[in-house]
Design a protein around this nucleic acid. Sequence first.
DNA 1: CTACGTGCAAACGGTTTGCATTTGG
DNA 2: CCAAATGCAAACCGTTTGCACGTAG
Lengths: 167, 167
Amino acid sequence: MEADFALGAVQVSSSPQERFSEYLQSRGKRITQQRRALIDHVFERHDHFDADELIANLSRTELGDKVSRPTVYRTLNELVEAGLLRRMNLGGRAVYEHDYGYPQHDHLHCTMCDTLIEFQSDELQRIRDAVGREHRFRVTGHRLIVSGVCQECSTKRHRRASPLDLV
Amino acid sequence: MEADFALGAVQVSSSPQERFSEYLQSRGKRITQQRRALIDHVFERHDHFDADELIANLSRTELGDKVSRPTVYRTLNELVEAGLLRRMNLGGRAVYEHDYGYPQHDHLHCTMCDTLIEFQSDELQRIRDAVGREHRFRVTGHRLIVSGVCQECSTKRHRRASPLDLV
DNA sequence: CTACGTGCAAACGGTTTGCATTTGG
DNA sequence: CCAAATGCAAACCGTTTGCACGTAG
């Protein structure tokens, strides 16, 4: 999957690596080779990925197959818990993206090529909070995915997006 | 799960049963006992449910255990395809609600009791379409889930909503 | 009569887990 | 040292599928 640099990073005081170390140490967890390899790889560039892509991608590097599948899953969970990654669910599988040092945003999801395009809307945020207030609901977050077909795919030959494609 | 009658039904020309029959016949599919039992049960009242709840619920009726698990799954897929049900994904499993004759809406999801509260926002629709235009993206639909804690759960004793709870 | 649908059991795919072994602090 | 993490293989869980039998039209 291609990187989407639609939004700029916000400045943060420490690197993801430092953040993760703090998180681990504060919980008596250890900084292992595998965790280092994973966080370095994951924060090398901003994109969306699932566990399989990460594993495939990782095994192409020198770090190679030094990290097993279960460890990848375990570490992804830790990175989410540490606030470094955000997880969303797309058609049954978990998809991850950078959270730490990255602004709140939502996604357009092309049902043909599966690409995720990021966008930001303050208005949306406003609506979300207003609706929460109306229902006396304490809002902690939201997930919006707009489904459709991206420009490139629109110009190519078509297949109908079925209702089954909707997230 | 409780029914949420937050929004009123819009009037439609034919019943879900009739709609389903049309759908089936137009495709050379058959109107079987099982399909009848399922659509009657599903449209008895408006609520959100997953496959397991439907099966459990159904086996409590006289129709009893006349419908097997695979048939429930197969029929749910047909009902979605027929435009009678909408499917959304909540924490790994599929959740269904009435689509036919029911207005477009989104959900507040309480991460403590798992209840879904419906709300409607024209503004949201507007934003969605505007964003699509900006990105030359042909929008076919969207899914928004606002996570948080509902009023009842807020007043009860707490457990922290972890980031893992986010849809 | 003959597809189409069903039920069963088994497969599936993404993710998690029990356990013996390795390793960080 | 020893608790925590890893790798392996197996379990898990929601969902789908192959196949022989049943049934709608």
